[in-house]
Design a protein around this nucleic acid. Structure first.
Length: 812
DNA sequence: AAATTCGCTGCAACTA
DNA sequence: TAGTTGCAGCGAA
């Protein structure tokens, strides 16, 4: 028997002798060898609860006697066992039913339902691979220690001679690092030819310092660049390079929707059968609406998918292009290049520039993947999802997966996924009341202190034990009575959800301490930061998951209770602050904005301490910052203050802008830049400079001196084109693009410019690269002026004042 | 395929 | 033609 340390790369199911086996692909670290394993002792299972606890033995026997004939096969359960589990708040006995194959569940379930002692089936919808990882507590986040025996491979599915038989597999207390694995990024360039998309080039880059470009067309004397004669050859070369480099991880940026999608199509077209994967496996595609491409034994990590589903809210970018995202995260962007330019250079047979561009793409994709790797492994460690699934996870998946692991570990039964009818019922209940937002009075303010509750909803759920099973309407003397409703939550026992959250919460406190005492320039620091981010992300997603209709732990009353307590606490702070002589000017969900007046920051801190000593559990108010000035503005209609729109300036002149056009994607750069400068002048107290600046911008627009790029408006196509009823500008542009044979898809961002053509705005809108002029009136009246006036009007400045400086005629 | 609600605004399409 | 309504998008938390 052997014993070694491995990294888990992939998991699957294989069959032999009418039994399903868990199969793992792991990397042996001592010699960097990728190996196939199977676990002979693990079986798929689910639980059956008896109608009455007394019937547990009867139920076990009844289940054992089931026999379903299917063809010439007799399907029976493999084994049964009576076990004790927590169901809701109670400990109960249930029958754990083991199966020869996961698919047998479907054959047996109806018969089980008819049994006299049957009560309920549970954990019936968890895939075998997921069960395995959750039960064993292993993932690709930490190394694993494996005891195994190497033997002849019995599985026909894999063209491989040897396999490791797992005797024991255990998690090690050692994270997986990027240099444990071979990582490769690749990128494909294409050109359109008669409506057909052809691959002309691909590049690759690895963390073992290998890189190169393979392209069509005449050869270019560049290092690591090879030219070939056909697209087919190009694909052959890629296959060859992948098997030579033998990467554990393949990073792409949108590989699920583009690179692999195209590659798979071409491979099928040329009837090629390349084994990109391990054990002779090809590229496997799955999913209809959202595709995903898997290469067995390697991890295809689509960075775009991860960024768009999980990371985006933490980024300060308007588009999720590789360029924008890489610039934001690693401070390194792409080279400048458009599809049109690639196409032109291709026609001119001048590929040098495209080659450099393409190679750079692979390099920054790799860097991005390496940089984010600790985040991926931390998430994997907590949720027990493998890296492939972390790449494609949503917040819901992360919480669900963590919950499943936690349930297995603590012997708590995991609720089934809701059936369709249940989802429909939940849907028809509609929305519940959310957070409280204080209506600000428009104007400029000085000496502002902002305080906010630290992780408000998580701390409420933990403190008030909010859980689907601790919910009760028997509320006498219960401190967890929900403020606006007639129900409450038991103080004991602790519910599964709050205890799971508390577990993460405590872990996070430890990690935060480590962050604090680790030098900022060390690798360890980055690692702890990533872990903190992962914990925080999952913790913050629980609240949403409670109110999410497809959730395993759905309970509308719980989500509703969290917001109700939230409203209660924030209003309480507002009241107390006023009672203590502070003027409250704004607040949103978990924050309050106080005017110091003749008080000091120290007074505010003392007030906060006083409040904190009265707050229950882990609910805590935090000092967010002091600002020397801040502005709140009027709503467009009416005189009342606009919520969710403000700007602050601190003592070092750093400016925070929320909600304004400046931070929105669907306004042109010119209007946004103008608004930012106006805000800066206003917050620094120089309104006249703000006014003259706006006049200058208007003048430039009229003289046609503005760059096209500054006038582009970016709007995302949220759905497929056919589903729209009204013809908004970006939809009109997209429709015209489609008529010209361009690809238009849901999720695409349409960049357009308003031209001087006559008609409605949607008639005037044109895709930016085809726009030959711009409509100065539109950009003055619908972009720059509204953005500037949003700020200035609240200070009593009128539109006419801004227009008078420029020799402006009537604009309509 | 899959975390929540609150809120602002532009534009097209409708109503009188 | 002016006013209103609803769709759609995007942000704050």
């Amino acid at each position: 028997m052997m014993e070694d340390i491995f990294v888990i790369l992939d998991i699957d199911i294989a069959h032999n002798n009418n039994l399903s086996y868990i199969v793992l692909v792991m990397k042996r670290l001592r010699d960097k060898k990728r190996m196939l394993f199977y676990d002979p002792n693990y079986r798929q299972y689910f639980y059956v609860i008896p109608n009455e606890q007394n019937n547990i033995y009867k139920l076990k026997q009844e289940i054992e006697h089931i026999n379903v004939a299917k063809g010439d096969e007799n399907i029976k359960v493999l084994d049964t066992e009576i076990v004790e589990r927590t169901y809701g708040l109670e400990k109960i006995k249930c029958v754990k039913v083991y199966l020869r194959k996961p698919s047998h569940y479907l054959e047996l379930k109806d018969k089980i339902k008819e049994l006299p002692s049957y009560g309920k089936k549970i954990e019936k919808d968890i895939p075998m691979t997921k069960n395995y990882l959750a039960d064993k507590g292993i993932s690709s986040g930490r190394k694993v220690r494996v005891k195994y025996i190497v033997e002849k491979n019995p599985f026909k599915e894999f063209k491989i001679s040897e396999i490791g038989k797992i005797i024991e597999i255990k998690e090690e207390n050692e994270p997986v690092r990027s240099d444990d694995l071979i990582m490769m990024a690749f990128d494909i360039e294409t050109v359109q030819d008669n409506g057909k998309e052809n691959i002309i080039m691909f590049s690759y880059s690895t963390n073992t310092n290998k890189q190169g470009v393979i392209h069509l067309g005449s050869s270019v004397s560049l290092q690591n660049t090879i030219s070939v004669y056909s697209e087919k050859e190009l694909i052959e070369k890629l296959s060859q390079i992948i098997s030579e480099i033998d990467p554990d991880i393949i990073f792409t940026y949108n590989g699920d929707e583009f690179d692999f999608e195209l590659l798979k199509r071409k491979i099928d077209m040329y009837s090629l059968s390349y084994s990109f994967g391990f054990g002779g496996k090809g590229i496997e595609g799955s999913g209809r609406r959202s595709k995903s491409y898997r290469i067995f034994g390697r991890v295809h990590f689509d960075l775009y998918k991860f960024v768009s589903r999980i990371l985006a809210p933490t980024l300060n970018v308007e588009v999720l292009s590789l360029d924008a995202v890489a610039s934001e995260i690693i401070g390194e962007g792409k080279k400048d290049m458009s599809f049109e330019r690639i196409s032109d250079l291709w026609k001119e047979n001048d590929l040098r520039e495209v080659i450099e561009y393409c190679l750079n793409d692979s390099k920054i994709t790799l860097k991005l993947g390496e940089y984010l790797f600790p985040t991926f492994t931390s998430l994997s460690d907590i949720t027990k999802l493998l890296l492939y699934d972390i790449s494609r996870a949503t917040y819901g998946t992360l919480v669900e997966s963590y919950g499943i692991r936690r349930g297995k570990k603590t012997h708590v039964l995991i609720p089934n996924k809701p059936k369709q009818e249940e989802v429909a019922e939940r849907y028809y209940l509609g929305e519940y009341e959310g957070a409280f937002v204080y209506e600000p009075k428009p104007g400029l303010y000085e000496d502002i202190v902002v305080m906010d509750f630290k992780s408000l909803y998580p701390s409420i759920i933990i403190t008030h034990n909010i859980d689907p099973f601790t919910l009760t309407y028997d509320c006498e003397d219960n401190p967890n009575k929900v403020p606006d409703y007639d129900y409450c939550f038991l103080t004991s026992p602790k519910g599964f959800i709050p205890s799971a959250m508390e577990h993460i919460y405590n872990k996070r406190i430890k990690v935060k301490e480590l962050v604090k005492k680790t030098p900022k320039d060390s690798k360890e620091y980055m690692f702890y930061k990533a872990e903190d981010y992962a914990l925080k992300t999952i913790l913050n997603s629980f609240y949403g998951y409670l109110g999410y209709i497809n959730s395993r732990w759905y309970r509308r009353e719980c989500a509703q209770a969290a917001t109700s307590f939230g409203r209660y606490y924030i209003k309480k702070i507002i009241k107390e602050a006023e009672a203590n002589g502070f003027k409250v000017i704004y607040g949103d969900t978990d924050s309050v904005f106080l005017l110091l007046g003749n008080k000091t920051v120290e007074d505010a801190l003392r007030f906060m301490e006083k409040i904190n000593s009265s707050l229950p559990g882990i609910i805590k108010l935090d000092f967010q910052g002091y600002y020397k000035r801040g502005i709140f503005v009027r709503k467009k209609e009416g005189k009342i203050g606009a919520k969710k729109r403000y700007a602050l300036i601190d003592k070092d002149d750093n400016i925070t802008i929320r909600g304004f056009e400046r931070v929105r994607r669907d306004w042109c750069k010119l209007a946004k830049d103008t608004q930012e400068i106006v805000l800066k002048y206003v917050l620094k107290g120089d309104i006249n400079k703000a006014k003259s600046f706006v006049r200058e911008v208007i003048e430039n627009l009229k003289r046609g001196k503005v760059k096209k790029e500054d006038l582009i408006i970016y709007v995302k196509l949220q759905r497929s084109l056919e589903t729209y009823e009204s013809l908004a500008p970006h939809i009109a542009v997209a429709k015209r693009l489609k008529n010209k044979g361009k690809e238009v898809f849901s999720g695409m961002i349409i960049p357009y410019i308003i031209t001087s053509r006559p008609g409605k705005i949607s008639d005037k809108a044109e895709i930016y690269y085809l726009a030959e002029d711009y409509d100065a009136d539109y950009y003055i009246n619908n972009q720059v002026l509204p953005a500037a006036l949003r700020v200035l009007e609240s200070l009593g400045i009128t539109k006419e004042e801004l227009l008078s400086g420029s020799k402006q005629k009537r604009l309509f």
